[in-house]
Computed example of a mutant assay.
Amino acid sequence: MVDLGLLVKKHRKKAGLTQLELANLAGIGKTTVFDIEKNKETVRWSNILAVLQVLNIEVEFKSPLTENG
């Protein structure tokens, strides 16, 4: 399983962005970026997707079920 908060933090730093800069680019509040990086469960999925889009992180969903499942 991926640590989403750590992934976001690493990509943000690699991009040379502060939490505030990333928040502004994603159109969300700085506290939301902080919450994502701390893996808070209360963050809206739409806000997570906005941050991932700014950081050019692609999300792929895979089901553990097979087609016959």
Rank of each mutant, 00 (worst) to 15 (best):
E21T: 07
I36W: 08
M1Y: 01
S46M: 14
D3W: 00
V8N: 04
K62Q: 12
A26V: 08
N68Q: 13
L65S: 10
E37D: 03
E67L: 13
T66H: 09
K38H: 14
R12C: 05
L55F: 04
V33A: 00
L7K: 10
V2Y: 11
K30I: 06
E21G: 02
E58C: 04
Q19P: 01
T32I: 13
D3H: 04
T66K: 13
G69S: 10
E41I: 00
N39S: 05
T42L: 04
E58P: 02
V54W: 02
N68P: 00
E58H: 11
I57K: 06
T31P: 02
K30R: 14
I28W: 05
E41V: 07
V2D: 08
K10L: 12
V59K: 01
T18F: 06
F34M: 00
E37T: 00
V59L: 05
A15C: 10
K40R: 15
M1N: 06
L55H: 02
V2N: 03
N39C: 08
E37M: 02
E60L: 11
K40L: 09
I36N: 06
D35Y: 11
V8K: 00
N24D: 14
D35I: 08
K38P: 04
M1V: 12
V8Q: 02
E60H: 15
L55C: 07
L20K: 10
A15D: 14
D3E: 09
K40C: 02
N24K: 15
E58D: 12
K14I: 07
G69V: 00
V54M: 04
N47Q: 07
E67F: 13
I36A: 03
E41G: 13
E60A: 14
W45D: 15
T32Y: 11
V2I: 15
K40Y: 09
P64W: 13
N56V: 09
G27S: 09
L20H: 06
F34I: 00
N68M: 13
S46T: 13
S63G: 10
T42K: 12
E67V: 10
P64A: 13
V59I: 11
L4Q: 07
